[in-house]
Structure formats: C-alpha cells, structure tokens
Design a protein around this nucleic acid. Structure first.
Lengths: 332, 332
DNA sequence: TTGAAAGCGCTAACAT
DNA sequence: ATGTTAGCGCTTTCAA
C-alpha cells in the first residue's frame, strides 16, 4: 500500500483536470454525467477519499464541533453525548470531545480545541470563569453553554427551566404533606444549582416554609451518599430531600436505606433531577424532573448553525416532573 | 473583531519573516532568545494561535485519534471515554468521537472519520464485519479494537482476558456449591461473548457440569431484565446466572427481586462482568469481574503511537474477580 | 541566525 | 463543460 490517493491521482487516472475531479465529486451541475461517471470509477478504483483537512483549510470550515464536558461520569451525560454525535453525524459533522480532568478547569483545555478550528463549541456542566469568558471573546468561535447560563447574557445558553421545575417539586412536596425540606446541592458556584435552589426555596417561602438544611454532594453518587448522612447527623432530620441531580439522589437513597436503615418514602421522601436511566429502575424508582435532552441538544445546535446572527440568547426548555415512588403521598 | 490572526500577521508585527515566527513558536534552537521574545510578545498581543488545520496539512498529522463507540449507553463506557480523553490530552492529542446509531453498523460511520485524517483509530464494542475489514485495509490508518478481537489476528486488539476470567467465575460458582448455571449473553456475534461463554462452559465441563440455559440481553438493562424473566419461565430454574455484562446483571437482579420476588443471593446467585460504578452500590452489591480500563486504554494507545512497526497484535489484560454479595457462599 | 520559496490537497474565481 | 491558476496557513528545505 503506497500513499493515499489524492484528487490529482484521480485526475490523472481519469484523464481530466484536478478541478474537474473536485467538481465531479461534489456533484457540480456543470460536469457532464459521462465525465462524472468516469471520474467516480477512477476514484473508486484508487480508493480515493477527499482529504477533509485540505478542504477545511480552503473553506475555513472543519465540519467539527467541539464539546467540552466537565462531568462525564454523571450518568446524565452519555445520553447527551449520544444525541450530539448522532444529530451531528446526520448533519455531516463530527464531534471533537474534550473532558475536563479533575482538578482542571475548562480554560485549561479550551485552547487546544480552538486550535483545531472547530466550527462551533458546546460547553457543558462547567463553571464559567472570567478567563473562559475572555478566551471565548477573543476567538470568534460560536459557543453555547449547555446546562449552564451566565447572568449577563453574554454567552448563548440552553438550559432546562430549572426554576419552574424546582417550584413544581416544592409545590408537590408541600401538597403531599412534607414540612421539613432539605436540599442536596451540587456545586454552589453553578447556575444550575442557583436556579434550582432559588426556585425550590421561593415556592417553600410562598407556603410559609423554608429549606431547613442544605449540603453539597458534587454531583456524584458518593457525594450524595455522604451528604445524606450529614443531613441526618443533626438534631431534627428532614422529612424530604430535594437532590439537584439524580446521581446524588441515588447515593442519598442508598445511604438512608442501607446505612441508616430508614425507609423511602415512608420515613423520608426523595426527589431528584435529570431522569437518568437508573431513576426508573425498581431498585430506586425515583421521583424526579426529566430534562428534555433531545430538545436541549437540538436547540443548542440550532444556535450554532442557524444562519441568523443571533445575539446571545438564553433558552429555557421546560422539564417534566416524573412521579414515581420515592415520595410519600396522601399525608396531610 | 476582525479575522483571526495568522503567523503572517505576527511576522509583520514583529518585523521578521513568517518562517521565523513558525520557528520561534516551536522553540527552534536556532532563533535567538531576543527574537523569540519579540515574537512571543507580538503573538500574544494579536491573540495568535497556530492553525492546527494548516499544520496538519503540511505535516500529514492531525493529532486527532478517532473513537468509534457502538454502545455508549452501557455504563461501562463513560469511564473508557474519560480515560481516553485524558490520556490523549496529556499527549497533546484530541479525540474525534463517533457513536454508531442503533440500526447502523460501524462501516456506515467509518468513512467520515477517515476523511478527517485521524492519526489512529479505536473501535470499541462493535461487530467487526468483513466490509469494515476491507475499509481498514485500504486506508492505512492504524487501528485497534478495544474489547473486541478477530480470530485471524488481522487487526490489533486489546481485550480483557475474557476466557481466564470466565473460568474463574465458573470455578468460583462451583466451589460455592452451585450446580445449575445459566448464562445471559450480550450478542452472540461478538468475540467478547464467545470468549466469556467458552471459558465459562469449559470450566463447568471440567467439573462435569454444563450451562443449563442461555438467553441474550443485548447488553442493556432492559435486555437483562427480560432475559432473566425468560430464564425463570421454564421448568427448572437455574441457581446461578452469569451475566456477560454488568448492566444486564443489574436488570436481571431487579427482575428477580421485584418481579419474581426472589432473593439474591439466597434463591439465585448473580455474577456480572465489567465492574461499573453501580455494581458496588449497596442496592446491587454485585459480584463481578473488573475490567482494567486504565491498562486497556493505555495499551491500545501504545499500539497506535509506538514507533515499532507492530504486526497486528492481540493483547489480553487480566481481569479481577471482585467478590461482593450477589453470590451465595458456604453451601456445599 | 534569519529569509525566501515551495508545497501539503483541496476549492473557487477566472479563463476558455 | 472543462482547464488554469491562485491561494488557505502552516512547515521545511534551501540560500544567504
């Protein structure tokens, strides 16, 4: 096997010019069917495939979009990833994936992505630092945050309607007779956390209640487990826990059942957020808020590729409260 | 914001030639410190970043490796993905990710990856068709299969020592007094399935036993759930089930406990394969074989990047039986 | 120690 | 309907 064939090789083999090859293979209307056929045959015979890199250099488009994912171990993200790769593939585009190692920030890995000249960039579940902000401003790469937003609307973002959904959770818990609500947050410095916290709290307030206790679990199973333990090491335990993400809810649930020997939902109610696959497994049967992944991913790609020159937009897609068995009902 | 700065802009700004800029920024020893400093300053001021695409075209190296993943929803893969992105990032390389949509085969998405001129290719958990084989032969892109192998050694592969590990599982079950062993497979047409099946069976045979029943679960939770149900719809149920992957084991476990009201391990023992995070959660507490992801990924990258001109190799990395609570012990 | 110039494999404007 | 030519932004001889 010698070197990869180029369009020049095909041209030679077909007895035409190189530009004719280029046109024929992109199905230019001006090339006769006859020549096209000849060229296609030659290309096939030589195993020729266009070199995307050369094409990119010329067209200034790589057909790659970058995805920076900070929290790949959260079971919520495989679905996100799959939806992205598939939607992109059907658009003839590819996904350049970067995950942010523990202990690093997005800013640390971003430059390498930008050098590859991605046509667009999606940043998900990351803390948006001011440095990140700056880098993104200098490079003109179109960017959208998924599952994060920034207060000043300086960056495109697509999120679930966190506030509304959390209000619904609070309202549901109150309606079902809960009074001592605790919250297990992820990271206090993320917009998702702030919005879910705020929505939850405001609705409790409306009912003359408040969040009685609060812990952080870093959006991991283990973190949720430990946070639940801490919640119950205090004087008066909560009668319901709102976990800002499903993984933490699973950890909390297991801590309560297996370590503290409490029953869910008889002794404590738990609500999650995301609706990851495990939430519906009978071992957990978790009441939670479903994030509309398809829609969110779709909107984010629309922002990146739509011709209109969007000013930064902040899109909120409604979530859906999925009632399963982890909340005690009927009490009053 | 005008267009992105190029090395020509930097050259002009620093009052040197473009080639000097190129050399200075790659820290060529022949350029004086003085000039380097001047150039670096200019580059910084203009927000210049080298264009990887142009560089790739010239050097014939993209610093991207492609990963084709057929089964991204299997909880085993997020870890694989994370290990890849991080190892690659520390090598100054990037990951181009493609997932294979349901109903498609690897061959359908492969060409798009090859056009992007990836420096190497990892294909994981895929059925290796003869068409795939052919494509890979024509393009000289170095390829390695992860978690799959081919019988004729025509493709590099890195796998867990499936046979040995499955022998150990069988031996363990027999030792603990089980006699009626069933198996829940993934897909019969994969090497992983064949190896695990074969190892398990051969060891049972050595003890005068055999696999009493067999079902397939397609490596999904739901598939494992249904497969377990099928296993128990027959006359004489098994007293132990070896599930070829953890997700299926979780599904099987839930089916047994919640649908059939059986106790695990008192009534039935279950063993999985992979050691996904959920396997260690107290709700499942699954005895399983741990796949050494770090090592496997490391070996696969070594094959892609090592200077030696490997002939196709088939590397087997040992797994480790992790004994938890899903197997009844002590009986004889 | 630096500069000039060629060329990687394409696309696209400009001939014809 | 097809060919010629000029780049895209780099790296890398070859000269000086």
């Amino acid at each position: 096997m010698t070197d990869r064939a180029t369009s020049v090789d095909v041209a030679r083999a077909a007895g035409v010019s190189q530009s004719t090859v280029s046109r024929a293979l992109s199905d230019d209307k001006r090339i006769s069917e006859e020549t096209k056929k000849k060229i296609r045959k030659a290309a096939e015979r030589l195993g020729y495939t266009p070199n995307e890199i050369a094409r990119s250099l010329q067209t200034n488009k790589t057909n790659m979009i970058g995805l920076i994912m900070a929290d790949i171990q959260n079971p919520f993200y495989p679905t996100v990833l799959e939806v992205y790769t598939q939607k992109l593939h059907s658009m003839g585009k590819r996904l350049l994936l970067l995950s942010v190692p523990r202990g690093f920030e997005v800013d640390d890995v971003l430059p390498s992505m930008l050098q590859h000249q991605v046509d667009g960039l999606v940043v998900t579940s990351a803390v948006v630092s001011s440095k990140l902000h700056k880098i993104l401003k200098v490079h003109k790469t179109r960017t959208v945050l998924l599952n994060r937003s920034v207060d000043d609307f300086s960056l495109n973002s697509v999120c679930c309607e966190n506030t509304t959904a959390s209000i619904e959770v609070a309202s549901f818990l109150v309606r079902e007779g809960h009074r001592r609500m605790a919250l297990i947050g992820g990271r206090p410095d993320t917009s998702t956390h702030r919005e879910r916290h705020q929505g939850f709290q405001s609705e409790l307030n409306r009912h003359g209640l408040d969040i009685v206790d609060e812990e952080y679990g870093g959006n991991t199973y283990e973190g949720g487990y430990q946070a639940a333990l801490r919640l119950f090491s205090k004087d008066i335990p909560p009668d319901a826990i709102f976990c800002i993400s499903d993984v933490m809810a699973l950890g909390a649930l297991d801590a309560l059942r297996y370590e503290l020997k409490l029953r869910v939902p008889e002794d404590v109610s738990i609500v999650g957020f995301d609706d990851i696959p495990a939430a519906s497994w009978p071992s957990y049967n978790l009441t939670t808020v479903r994030q509309p992944v398809e829609a969110m991913v779709g909107r984010s790609l629309a922002i990146l590729f739509d011709p209109e020159d969007y000013p930064p937009v902040s899109i909120k897609v409604p979530g859906e409260l999925i009632i399963r068995g982890s909340v005690k009902t009927g009490a009053t």
